[in-house]
Nucleic acid binder design. Structure first.
Lengths: 109, 109
DNA sequence: ATCTATCATCGTAATATTGCGATATATTAT
DNA sequence: ATAATATATCGCAATATTACGATGATAGAT
């Protein structure tokens, strides 16, 4: 009990839910927006930018990295994170498909 | 501790995260897809369709209802749930905007 | 009025998430 | 070698989520 019963859902549903979950936190949204804004890659300017502890930021970065949205390159003593364009495009397609898939049937209610 | 620090993020980020969180569960994705598939509204055929207890389904429906994605009409002894088209279109726009907003900057990594 | 079917809600157990301080690790500078 | 800087990871506390049985509430049928 307490665990999501992934066995009873299909691949698409589980994958979609995972991606959405990875995005479903304001800090992770802020991180993505910050990476985009900076144009060039950034590291833990995020700790200053957002008001979260370094350990917390690192954890959020890890989640984004796990799902594949971002990737990190070692750059001297710091690490440069950026969006994995290939993965992001893939995710974008998948989410877009879902958004379009949920179309409103005739006005039943 | 243990709670998301919503104060440090902006409205858009928090709202977006809430919507994504509401969608970030395979059962809730399945529920939305089922409502769409049925074209007409459905109630707790979901309990048979998905392999979850009635109490669990009801809870998931509540979350979707709270965020406004679906609404329920009493229909005799059962309840007819359907997608709130206005709200869904609004959500779709917002998510779409975010998906487009996160564009890949020049190949920095 | 009583039974039945459909939902919602309550209470609870198991597990997951969020956040942080402390510590470990790795790279560069001195 | 040592110090400084940037990240990652560990361990923990607080809280949230997921799932379900039991119990309420409501509407239609008998």
């Amino acid at each position: 009990m307490g665990t999501t019963k992934t066995e009873i859902f299909n691949e698409q549903q589980n994958r979609l839910a995972s991606v959405l979950k990875a995005l479903a936190h304001p800090a992770r949204i802020a991180i993505l927006q910050y990476i985009v804004k900076q144009n060039s890659c950034i590291c833990n300017d995020l700790v200053d930018e957002l008001g979260l502890a370094q350990a917390t930021i690192s954890q959020h970065l890890k989640e984004l990295k796990n799902i594949g949205i971002i990737k990190g390159n070692i750059e001297g003593t710091s690490i440069c994170y950026c969006i994995d364009s290939q993965k992001w495009n893939q995710i974008k397609l998948e989410l877009d498909l879902f958004l379009k898939e949920v179309e409103i049937p005739s006005n039943c209610c």
